[in-house]
Amino acid sequence: MSAGGAGGEATGGIPQNQLIALGTLGGLAGVYGGHFLSVASPAFAFIGALGAICAIVWGSAAVRRVASYGLGTGVPSIGMIALGMGVVASMFGLAVGGIAGPIVAFIIASIIGLVVGVLANKVLGMGIPIMEQSMTEIAGAGTLTIIGLSVAMTGTFMFDAVLETVVATGYIAVIFIAGGMAILHPFNANLGPDEKQDRTLMTALEKGAIAMVIAGIVATVVDGASAVPSILIGVFIWYIAFSKYVKLVHRDAYKVLGTGLLPTEEELE
């Protein structure tokens, strides 16, 4: 773990409001699109994972902003609290909301996130000016990630199916860690004085694609969702994002040199 960023607000790149719009609208569109189109054909379940990727990109952008102030503890903590709040809110929303489930879950998550953000500043005295907004965003992004990946696994967000296929089987733990990693890892991997928003968000896209492939693998044993589209599209997105990421690393690095293979024993003597 690391102690976080340099102690100021992260700047540059796409404005946060546009990313909020991408995450919220893209996430909800993906979740609902995946749900309704899967009725026509299980092959469309992958749209849910695309929604999750939108939420993951948004979430990691929010983590980047808040963790730049220096949390005092590692960046991973904020990804874990995001999914912790997200799993509570999403199970509640899906259980009581019916067709409005994802929206109910999103609202509940935002409320929990806002309260935790206020507590962090007012009670714990963290003194990060954007803490309230960021916690709200992170909780919302975590919730949409969970629901989006659930849709990709089951083809629906109806609670009975999600409970039977995702929760009772334990795949929810996979979602928890894969989604949490995708939100916390991008900034954790890229932080430092040379951190750039586009490189961080490209990592988020790449991690989201890995989560999508994992959701696809789970879907192989489920009737309501097809595995092949999720896996193929996930691998395609991963390849594009990873090669872009490598290009960005080359752009930001002073120089990239190969170190060659490890020296043999004779060479060392």
Partner: peptide, 9 residues
């Protein structure tokens, strides 16, 4: 999963 979520928070 609820216990895990509450635990992490």
């Amino acid at each position: 999963i609820f216990a895990v979520g509450i635990f992490f928070v």
